[in-house]
Design a binder for these strands. Structure first.
Lengths: 189, 189
DNA sequence: GCTCAAGGAGACAACTCTGTCTCCCTTTGA
DNA sequence: TCAAAGGGAGACAGAGTTGTCTCCTTGAGC
């Protein structure tokens, strides 16, 4: 029997909502559109998700888990020294920015789309940033960077800046500027 | 006689809308709230601004003009060498991030809040970024930086990253990380 | 075979939003 | 003096939103 957590309808709703929320923005997608695309009854959606905000939260949590796993895996599979992997992060990101349906970093998008800072989905993005920082800090320590904590903060600046450039100007090459900056930071440390 | 461009009601609407849009987000402020706070009739608002999108556009254009003038003035008044002024930009920004009612960079906010990239207000932010870049490029050239164009792009990364950090984490100290990074970039050029 | 949860279909309530419209008053320039 | 424009107050249309409710069907485990 399909339990409440693994039911096909639930998975379908999450998948469709994830796509729609990303492509059009959470605020520009109505529940009616989600159920129409999912081929699911409204009653069914509200049985699994008490409110639209709950649905948004769960979609973002799922997306964040997927993203960090994908990111670390993509970087680690590049191999090489820790320094090489640090630099490779921006190659991975540039590929992401260049994907045909890229419409900005979903975690930046959702924070700014939902102006209310107390919205739970806001925390998902903050926590993801922290996970990224910790991963980078580890790589930096391994690469022998002088102050890995400060370095990881500077990294957050660069990844945020590059993602913003990709989002606002639709320009994926911010990643290369960031990579170049990172190289200088490592050399100077 | 108060012409259509300088009328008191028009100025009042722009001012109130500017505040409300910034504090709560353009999408979370209704026309009814703008007119209630402005003490103006709905008919009057629509006489001056054909639609809410027109109002948003005009508010953002006004804000962008104000911002770049304020920024350049604040930096130039710091005096010192071109290099010192370049670095001082992030002191100016940190002060901005620390203001009591700071709620993120309004130009980043509006782009991501209005998910539709074809909205005219989107262009205002893109153009402002370009104005910032040109201003920085000039300073960089004056400071004897090797490649002022590439440098100005890297600067956009840093200002975007710092503004994002201030917005998402409510942490104004991103400006100091950015300043430190900028110092290294200048030294390495 | 029976029970009960999951699901489909969709009406409906109770909002909110933008933009239009009417009616009337006030100010000002010719 | 008078016409025209600016403005105030607010009803209203029309579309949109989230979330609730009823009624019906299906299927799996006991």
């Amino acid at each position: 029997m399909a339990t409440s957590e693994t039911s096909a309808a639930r998975q379908q709703i999450l998948e469709i909502a994830s796509q729609l929320f990303y492509q059009k923005g959470t605020q520009n997608v109505g529940i009616n559109e989600v159920i129409a695309q999912s081929g699911v009854a409204k009653r069914t959606l509200y049985r699994h998700f008490p409110s639209k905000d709950d649905l948004i939260l769960e979609v973002m949590q799922h997306r964040a888990n997927q993203w960090i796993a994908w990111f670390e895996e993509a970087v680690n599979s590049k191999g090489g020294t820790a320094k090489e992997r640090l630099l490779a992060t921006f190659d991975v990101l540039q590929k992401w920015y260049s994907e045909p349906h890229f419409r900005g970093c979903p975690f930046i998008n959702v924070v700014l789309e939902i102006a209310d800072a107390s919205h739970p989905a806001h925390q998902v993005s903050v926590q993801l940033r922290e996970k990224i920082r910790e991963y980078i800090m580890q790589l930096a320590a391994e690469a022998g960077v002088g102050d890995p904590i400060a370095f990881s903060q500077q990294y957050l600046l660069l990844i945020g800046g590059a993602s913003l450039m990709a989002t606002i100007e639709g320009n994926p090459t911010g990643a290369q500027f960031a990579k170049h900056t990172l190289e200088i930071l490592i050399a100077a440390s």
